[in-house]
Design a protein around this nucleic acid. Structure first.
Lengths: 331, 331
DNA sequence: ATGAAAGCGCTAACAG
DNA sequence: CTGTTAGCGCTTTCAT
């Protein structure tokens, strides 16, 4: 007798399906006596209510979609944990979607919400198509997390990128550095523009000229890209004495490349990363970096999304960051 | 006019809902003329078919559940990618579930398949409750990936752990090592027992005695546990000249600890890891390790599960591994 | 406190 | 080739 349904339970208990449903949903308009009858029938038949029927009836999927560019960047991991735990608390589940920053793949996932397979989206893909997202946000619940298009009216949670970057560079200056390179993402991303602004503000404030040849752009935030960029930086005529990379993975690539070329960190070059991923503490030397409260950001994003799904008003949040000073700048 | 349904499209096109459904599902029993009418109605009304209705009707969720102990171990990342891409090809989506090796959380996720929210499970949690899993497997599609209970009749994909371990240790012996430590997981896990067996076989084959004090167990596979275990190993009276750790994260922790104590790798101690996670190539020195074909394993697991869901017969698979020799054993 | 009835949106069997 | 009908499993009025 596989897969009993609510009708069979009702019959077994000698009540109507409606009553079984009431018991299932913990409504207190059921007498103790019938409740017990129903519960017995449920366990007798090993009944498990079908989410399929319930979801159709309620026009909801209780699924939240998370959009990330790649699962390979550990930066997203803690955020995802925060989202997942919060979602679970509210009986939501998460569908983790890797876009590879590919619009086609992205669109497959957007379809999931259009097709009611997901109740909302938390987007963490900086490369997301802002136009599509804006359009989608008119009909569906959408939150941007850690990366936002800016001024497109979609609620977001993020940190103050300009300030974080400013503080990182100021720290380097305080350590006596003047020749400071920036390893940045493509400036089509808002956060990349903000972080460069912070970099320039710090330099300017201390009367250090901004030198174009010290600013390098990488296509992605991965390890290899950090190596590559560092290789170029090391060929500069006036070699910098410090590098600020906008992601830990980039910074770790830089570290590796510096070591490979026989130089030492922080003796010859100081290095700062960004994100405080787990691995930033496993390198040798350990990496100075900007910590984002990733777990908290995940919680907030999930809470906002759930509120939004339920029609509540929500506000964007800007979280505090923190400069974590470790061996790569103070060896 | 938000959220048109199939009835409204039918009305707009002047046909029945059944015909619209046929067009939607690409059945060729529809005349060119009506097909066009229907397609026009669809785009006019911006109709998006609801998976909720379809799923109920078809008694399927088209969702695959992936069970992992923690998202923090990069080992799972590539496998997940393989699963996801394969799933996508077959119009399945994946629900990523982190159990923290916690039976309660595990049970929440098992409920998803009981409640028809998921069509099947790929379990990668070594700590999974084998009894529950076995029971579940009687009614639902379940595959074990990279970790299997052994002899419980659930199809699996894995590698030959004993052989991989044997080869790693043999490599160390060939490099001239005799005092070789093993950093292993709790032997309640099958793979831990297999890997110890391989370790012992290699030693024995070369006439090297197996020394109890060289075998250390860690509670988890994380970085910190590797550091801790290494700390103990370094206090041994007769310090080993090589360490074989059953995970890269463990090995990286060992690396860090060795460096911290002023010793060098591989000069004073050689180190081998297991898994070939991305990071194993980012450390200094880079890490010798056993490569598992993780992406392929993911693809296979997903394909097996989908076949199983569709009632096809399936066989377990044992994949080939490979010893990747890098700096941590060969200076 | 409980039941009858309707319907969420879709697909498949059957009839024509 | 197309429409009618029924029903997947559940929840929610509306009665009583």
């Amino acid at each position: 007798m596989p897969m009993a349904n609510i009708q069979q339970v009702a019959k077994q208990a000698g009540v109507s399906a409606a009553t079984v449903s009431r018991v299932l949903n913990g409504q207190n308009s059921v007498s103790q006596k019938t409740r017990i009858k129903v519960e017995e029938a449920i366990s007798l038949l090993r009944y498990e209510p079908s989410m399929l029927g319930r979801n159709l009836r309620n026009s909801e999927s209780r699924i939240i979609l998370i959009l990330i560019p790649t699962i390979s960047n550990p930066f997203y991991l803690e955020i995802i944990k925060g989202i997942e735990n919060t979602a679970l608390d509210h009986q939501y589940n998460i569908l983790l979607c890797e876009t590879d920053s590919n619009p086609d793949k992205e669109n497959i996932y957007f379809d999931l919400v259009r097709k009611r397979m997901a109740d909302g989206i938390i987007s963490m893909d900086p490369a997301v198509n802002v136009e599509t997202l804006k359009q989608l946000a008119e009909k569906y619940a959408i939150i941007q997390c850690s990366e936002y298009g800016g001024g497109i009216g979609i609620p977001y949670v993020t940190i103050n990128n300009e300030m974080a970057s400013y503080q990182a560079v100021r720290h380097l200056i305080h350590m006596g550095h003047e020749k400071i390179a920036l390893m940045n993402s493509d400036e089509k991303f808002l956060y990349a523009r903000e972080r460069r602004a912070g970099y320039e503000r710090a330099l300017t404030e201390y009367g250090i000229p901004v030198r174009k040849e010290y600013i390098h752009y990488t296509q992605h935030l991965g390890f290899e890209y950090g190596q590559q960029a560092m290789k170029k930086i090391l060929t500069l005529e006036e070699r910098p004495t410090a590098v600020f990379a906008v992601s830990d993975l980039l910074a770790i690539g830089a570290l590796k490349e510096i070591n490979a070329s026989g130089l030492s960190v922080p003796g010859d070059l100081a290095v700062i990363g960004f994100d405080k991923i787990d691995f930033s503490n496993m390198t040798n030397p350990t990496l100075t970096t900007i910590a984002q409260p990733m777990y908290k950001m995940g919680i907030a994003a999930a809470q906002m999304l759930i509120d939004k799904i339920q029609g509540k008003p929500i506000d964007s949040i800007i979280f505090d960051h923190e400069l974590i000073i470790r061996e790569s700048t103070s060896g």
